[in-house]
Write a protein that binds this DNA or RNA. Structure first.
Lengths: 227, 227
DNA sequence: TTAATACTACGTTGTCGGTCGAAGTATTGA
DNA sequence: TCAATACTTCGACCGACAACGTAGTATTAA
């Protein structure tokens, strides 16, 4: 029997739940109340939706005191949502040449895509890594070169493959830029490093990554990016 | 503004429409009536659904006489559906250890995944290509090796990259096998070649690829597969 | 303990949309 | 021309479900 794609798609295919899931693309675990605010509904309704999403295996929940933290269940779910974001963006921009929304410019510049960086800045990063031959892209597939491995070892990146099945590198299509950016373990490390260095912080209740002036300078220096 | 993933997901997230879309994963264009039969509804209801799917940009329609042929709009949509099939399969098999459905064995053996081959046989094909170093898989990414390019040139495959952005090779995760198989231009060529040689035919109203006895023999010989 | 917060369970309401019957238009074939 | 087929439009019905108010149960803070 074929798997029933309607149940999963149906869970995502309701605007309120979709807003919650999109909010969780920020990678951070959010509480039920936060998600209720995000989706602009009461706590009761949110509770009901979140229950469905957990039962439907799209979210996992961690209880902490009187709070319940919800999170996307894994990279697979995040990838599905990103695919949906891409296609939806294609469709939306194909439709009306009018109102090609300016969008939140900060969201367009840099945002979190589950566990890695997305947006203009991440595309520039990707281009730089390609130009410097630290990653190689063939056939729309990416991998670290020997130089790349050295480079990331030098800057102290702990990106050992480990026993996880996750690829070191993975290109992720950006819905705002329509260009590739870096996902996978390496992409995840870069984002974490960013925060650890204090170069940027995640906006509350949003996927926006807000760089400090100096952070942006140091970041672009580290990865040789022209701003 | 973020794209609204709810509309696309909502279109897929209705069981009747999901059945139609899954049927179209066979890659063949189907008429409205055929899809109505497939989904077990009347022609009126089917018409309404198909209209929505076309408006929603998931399908394209070609009019031919008094028939209307519907088809998935492109590889992107097919990829989205395949991702959904995978996740749904994971979820379904995680749930009840009971009724791990035997499924249609023929569907499990060989089926069409939009424009390439999927199922047990395709996974074996993939493994054979890897073993013989005709394709290389690193970091979960695939590409044709030099030998691979020679091999496919020898057997007359016209798999020039062309100006299309489609990758030559692409691994596609199989929902029935939980293993990779070959997609992309090369995967498409192999499937077409199969039919051209008369080694197999597509079942009507299904994704099943039905091999002839001799076809299976010649196919496995051509690609050095152990059956 | 009392009060406040975070979340949940239940019952009601109202809307949205899937479904089909009936009737209509276009195309094909005899 | 007449009849059959393929698809669409309209209208009505009805079930599903999102939303919330009320009323609960945990957990924390004072």
């Amino acid at each position: 029997m074929q798997p029933d794609i309607a149940v999963v798609a149906g869970l995502i295919g309701e605007s309120t739940r979709a807003r919650m899931l999109t909010a969780l693309m920020g990678g951070k675990a959010l509480t039920a109340t936060e998600l209720a605010v995000e989706a602009d509904i009461t706590a009761q309704t949110a509770s009901s939706h979140l229950n469905k999403l957990v039962t439907g295996q799209l979210l996992v929940v961690r209880k902490q005191g009187r709070h319940k933290y919800f999170q996307l269940k894994g990279p697979k779910i995040a990838a599905l949502l990103e695919t949906l974001l891409n296609i939806s963006n294609d469709i939306a921009s194909a439709r009306p040449p009018v109102t090609t929304g300016p969008a939140d410019p900060r969201l367009r510049t840099a945002r979190v895509c589950y566990d890695h960086l997305a947006g203009e800045l991440s595309v520039k990063l990707y281009d730089s890594l390609i130009t410097r031959k630290l990653i190689a892209q063939e056939c729309e597939q990416v991998q670290l070169t020997a130089q790349g491995l050295d480079f990331f070892a030098d800057i102290g990146a702990s990106i050992a493959q480990g026993k996880s099945k996750r690829p070191l590198c993975k290109s992720c299509l950006d819905w705002s830029e329509r260009r590739s950016h870096l996902a996978g373990i390496t992409g995840q490390w870069i984002l974490n490093d960013l925060f650890k260095q204090g170069w940027a912080r995640k906006d509350l209740d949003s996927r926006v990554v807000q760089f400090t002036q100096q952070g942006l300078r140091l970041f672009s220096k580290k990865y040789s990016i022209d701003i």
